[in-house]
Design a protein around this nucleic acid. Structure first.
Length: 326
DNA sequence: AACTGCATCAACCGCTCCGAA
DNA sequence: TTTCGGAGCGGTTGATGCAGT
């Protein structure tokens, strides 16, 4: 278009706003509304460009803005919406009442992005990072997939297409290879894998991803039942799969391929749980009181389906599978 | 106390979108 | 259909404060 920026005009002030300027802007908008932002500075007697006034008002001075720390619920909402919408911060903000897109943008860049990286999650794709360290960091998913494969053998009523079965078989084979290579030597695992928060965060984060799970066909969810058993459930109705004559239960400590427990991704709660890897075993010590302080956390567990399920079933994830295979 | 590095966030920049003429 | 201006959006910058040495 070639239109010059509105702030190029000479003599207009830039930089931090003074209290007087704030008062002038608030007073003017309360009396007259903002109308045309370009015309506003002249009308209000401000030596600013209209754009600067608009940003100051929408990001800071608006009376309905909520300031201060983000709650855990808001964090989860931002992450989940970001996985759906990408960097559409304004769309995300519209789902977070009284928060501005600028605030969300800053919070994402300074907190959430780092948080995801520490969890081994790519903040852009919301997938486990596929560099050489984080392929192994995705092991909980692979391990879970191996479980999935064995589950298939347990129940004849589950019908799956050939592609899904092939993916499950591939994961199963990978688990065997990885298990052999690691050969009971936990010290050879990457540091990230030995960090409880990493494993914990990733599994629970991916679980949260499933709030908006794309799959409507493969309907499994593994639920933590009293911290020790897993029950296969139907993701679409949140009840145990009707096709199962009885819920399939597995004890986490019986099988080194068992899934890590599903727990919320909040940092505070992560400290209440400890996950350790010992000689190919994933042992999760779970404090039974962890959810009593946060009712929503248990709900979130029930409402989502499994990351491995998502990974296996996601028809759009072919490039991700290629990454794994390569 | 002085310095340095890092984290945070308000504000700016440049681009795109959209509606009016 | 094209042009133009207003508004909004995402990315980036820079001032500030804090923690560590």
């Amino acid at each position: 278009m070639g239109r010059s920026p509105c702030c190029d005009e000479n003599g207009l002030k830039k930089g931090p706003w003074t209290q007087d300027e704030d008062d002038t802007l608030i007073d003017h908008i309360q009396k007259h509304g903002h109308g045309s932002w370009r015309a506003l500075p002249k009308q209000a007697g401000l030596n600013r460009c209209g754009k600067s006034c608009r940003l100051r008002w929408t990001n800071y001075l608006r009376p309905d803005i909520k300031r201060g720390n983000f709650t855990e619920e808001e964090e989860e909402t931002i992450i989940n919406l970001h996985s759906l919408l990408g960097n559409k911060r304004s769309s995300i903000a519209s789902n977070l009442p009284r928060r501005t897109d600028n605030e969300i943008k800053n919070y994402w860049n300074t907190h959430l992005r780092k948080k995801l990286l520490q969890m081994g999650i790519d903040p852009v794709t919301h997938r486990p990072r596929t560099d050489h360290l984080n392929v192994l960091a995705a092991l909980p998913q692979l391990i879970a997939a191996a479980n999935f494969n064995s589950l298939l053998n347990l129940n004849q009523n589950v019908q799956l297409d050939a592609t899904t079965l092939a993916k499950a078989q591939l994961l199963h084979n990978m688990i065997q290879v990885l298990s052999t290579n690691n050969n009971n030597n936990s010290s050879s695992w990457p540091l990230a894998m030995q960090t409880s928060d990493n494993l914990f965060g990733q599994s629970s984060y991916l679980e949260n991803q499933n709030l908006f799970g794309q799959s409507q066909n493969l309907c499994h969810i593994l639920e933590n039942s009293h911290g020790e058993d897993f029950i296969v459930k139907n993701q679409t109705n949140d009840h145990p799969l009707d096709s199962f004559s009885s819920p399939v239960q597995m004890n986490a400590q019986d099988d080194y391929n068992s899934l890590p427990l599903l727990v919320p991704a909040s940092p505070g709660e992560s400290k209440q749980s400890q996950m350790m890897i010992k000689n190919k075993s994933i042992v999760h010590e779970h404090q039974h009181n962890q959810d009593t302080s946060n009712p929503s956390s248990s709900n979130s567990t029930q409402d989502h389906h499994q990351p491995w399920c998502d990974t296996i079933d996601d028809e759009a994830s072919d490039s991700y599978w290629k990454d794994i295979i390569e």
